[in-house]
């Protein structure tokens, strides 16, 4: 009974420490308000169908990539950070020629997109035109955005903003057991 009384007396302090601990753990965690976690992480690739930027007779569907490790990159010619990450995608393509890199040219003009690729190189296995509807299905809200999918058709990684060497080394290379 005496123990219970003491416990009740110290309960507010215990609760305060507990709540403070939760607050501190949130503050110290590696969270960035500008980079919210993707709602699609560990979920299936959303349904999509797209036509090739260079040849409208060539099409790509979800079923074409859902059994392959694929890097999906949303880009546009008007997006400056896309230009920044482009050489890294080219490096990846050179080092891993078997890796499928799907580029979605997001809300761009065909002419500008082709010019962008002529000037900066084309690391993509397939470039699909996205009028915004594919981006919506992938929850894209800013360019560039990159997704990694596994052989089970699940999204295993998402990166908002331009890729950098550290992100590629830590989050993309470990999945490339091609």
């Amino acid at each position: 009974m005496a123990f219970l009384k003491k416990f009740v007396l110290f309960l507010p302090i215990i609760i305060t420490i507990f709540l403070f601990g939760i607050l501190v753990s949130y503050l110290l965690s590696d969270r960035d308000a500008n980079k919210p976690p993707s709602a699609l992480l560990n979920k299936n690739i959303p349904n999509f169908s797209t036509v090739n930027l260079f040849d409208e007779n060539k099409k790509l569907f979800k079923k074409d990539i859902e059994d392959k490790v694929t890097l999906i990159n949303f880009f546009a010619s008007w997006c400056i950070p896309c230009k920044q990450e482009h050489p890294l995608l080219e490096d990846l393509q050179k080092k891993f020629p078997n890796l499928i890199i799907v580029g979605f040219n997001h809300k761009d003009s065909k002419k500008d997109a082709i010019k962008f690729l002529e000037e900066n190189g084309n690391p993509y296995t397939f470039i699909g035109i996205d009028d915004g509807s594919i981006g919506l299905e992938f929850g894209v809200f800013g360019l560039p955005e990159t997704f990694m999918t596994d052989k089970n058709g699940k999204i295993i990684f998402k990166h908002i903003g331009p890729l950098d060497k550290k992100t590629i080394k830590t989050n993309i290379l470990p999945y490339l057991n091609l």
């Binding site: 919210p36 976690p37 699609l40 929850g139």
Partner: peptide, 8 residues
Amino acid sequence: LVQRYGEY
């Protein structure tokens, strides 16, 4: 919208 962009 939550399915695509998350609860955020």
